[in-house]
Design a binder for these strands. Structure first.
Length: 422
DNA sequence: AGGTATTCACATGAAACTATTCTCTGAGTTAGG
DNA sequence: TAACTCAGAGAATAGTTTCATGTGAATACCTGT
């Protein structure tokens, strides 16, 4: 759905080549070696690639630089909040700025550190403790992953920070994730950090996908954290096309992209809130598909195929990585729906009954309906199912559950789940 | 007919509990001097 | 005596359970006409 790296997953998929005999295998490899790759440098199309020039984000870059620049003169810059949907270049611009500023600080010997933390990273920075621990590690203190009280780690961090006169900018990417998970206490703790420091000073940059996020945090935090804000609007189709064009020059060997392909790719991605990452993924997978089918150029049809492929592997990957209980619930939903006619929906109660049955069969323990309710909403969030809350008046309230996964895909999901469960 | 009250089948929230993972500590044990 | 082992104790976290409360609208039940 969001940051899970679909790109890598798609790349790992085996090639769809049927190999019957050893001779064919030999020739296949030989042909493979002889065949020229369409790609010059695939990395350019991946998320982690940091381009030298960031297109269509000049205004934001200027703002960002203007706000953070005082740090270079050892003043405390304003705290900053950055909003924007996924794939609008927030992280990219931020990282770019960080690299530049850190380099400058190093060469001029300015006591400035910028620490970047992605709060979404599991096991690294997704709870209050982990964030503070990670910060402490960034400034060079060893702290255990667990075993210490949170405020002790906080004190360790604080002492180390204050040891010398310096400016620290802490960038918290996807800050809305922790707040949703463990409340806004961390933010409060962090914002009052300055009042406990004598020598050092700290500024914060929060990056969030969710614009409404700021509305439901503690007002005290809101005012101190949101001194400045920058908004990253989605790219429109034209801008996306520019970006794709620029990167495809570096990524592919020669002009192998047919007319209109980039436009189509951009249009697809623009349709989904202008996500540049998606556009790049699409182009890369399209390239892979074209290569695999021995095409010399990337045509519009490859984009369609790429989209389908990305979607398929995304769904399968999500399902495979779900915890067991979640898988059981998913399978129950599929079973309930399979027992019905097309177009009909399942309800929470039915799914729960089926779920209990399934647990007995597979020897798993049965969770409460309360929990199943949550699991169902989680599956909904993941986009595996659609669940709509409806009231049937006298006959209660429930979730209408249905799926939008195409039928040919369903087959595969079923077997996957069966394999996982039995 | 129009208005109010019920009622169903869950949803949603908060708090408490459980199992697991990890560290640190200090008692007891061991091996070498 | 120093080094080592190993069982607590304390802490964080994910995943659940328990208990309590909320909810939207189709029906049932009134009410006065």
């Amino acid at each position: 759905m969001d940051e899970t790296n679909i790109s890598d997953f798609v790349a790992k998929q085996p090639t769809e080549v049927k190999i019957e005999t050893k001779d064919e295998l030999d020739t296949f490899f030989e042909e493979f070696l002889e065949k020229d790759s369409l790609f010059l440098d695939k990395v350019v199309l991946q998320v982690k690639y940091l381009p030298e020039i960031i297109l269509h984000r000049t205004a934001q870059m200027k703002q960002l630089a203007a706000i953070l620049a005082p740090a270079l003169k050892t003043d405390k810059p304003s705290n900053l909040f950055i909003y924007g949907k996924t794939g609008t270049g927030k992280t990219l611009c931020m990282k770019h700025t960080i690299t530049k500023m850190n380099a400058l600080a190093e060469s001029r010997n300015i006591p400035l550190r910028i620490i970047y933390l992605n709060c979404k990273l599991k096991k690294v920075a997704d709870t209050e403790y982990r964030i503070i621990a990670q910060l402490a590690r960034e400034v060079g203190e060893h702290v255990p992953m667990t075993g210490l009280p949170t405020d002790e780690v906080y004190n360790i961090f604080l002492t180390k920070l204050d040891a010398k006169k310096q400016t620290i900018i802490i960038v918290l990417d996807e800050i809305d994730q922790i707040v949703r998970k463990s409340g806004d206490e961390i933010l409060y703790t962090l914002t009052r950090i300055n009042s406990e420091l004598n020598q050092a000073q700290v500024a914060f940059v929060g990056i969030s996908n969710d614009v409404r996020f700021i509305e439901d945090i503690d007002p005290r935090v809101r005012s101190s954290l949101g001194e400045e804000e920058i908004i990253f609007p989605p790219y429109n189709a034209l801008e996306l096309k520019d970006i794709l064009a620029k990167r495809s020059i570096l990524a592919f060997k020669g002009p192998i992209i047919e007319d209109g392909v980039l436009a189509k790719c951009a249009a697809y991605a623009a349709r989904e809130h202008g996500d540049a990452r998606r556009a790049l993924d699409l182009l890369r997978v399209a390239g892979e598909v074209a290569e695999r089918t021995n095409c010399e150029a990337i045509a519009a049809q490859h984009i369609d195929m790429a989209e389908e492929k990305i979607e398929k592997s995304r769904i399968l990957e999500i399902i495979e990585t779900q915890p067991k209980q979640s898988q059981i619930v998913m399978y129950s939903i599929l079973l309930v729906l399979a027992a019905k006619k097309r177009g009909e929906i399942a309800e929470t109660g039915e799914v729960f009954e089926q779920y209990k049955e399934l647990c007995k069969q597979t020897g798993n323990n049965i969770l409460t309906q309360r929990r199943i309710s949550d699991l169902i909403s989680e599956l909904d969030m993941l986009g595996l199912i659609n669940a709509r809350l409806i009231s049937k008046g006298r006959y209660g309230r429930t979730r209408e559950i249905y799926i939008t996964i195409p039928a040919d895909m369903l087959e595969k999901i079923n077997t996957t789940l069966q394999g996982e469960l039995f």
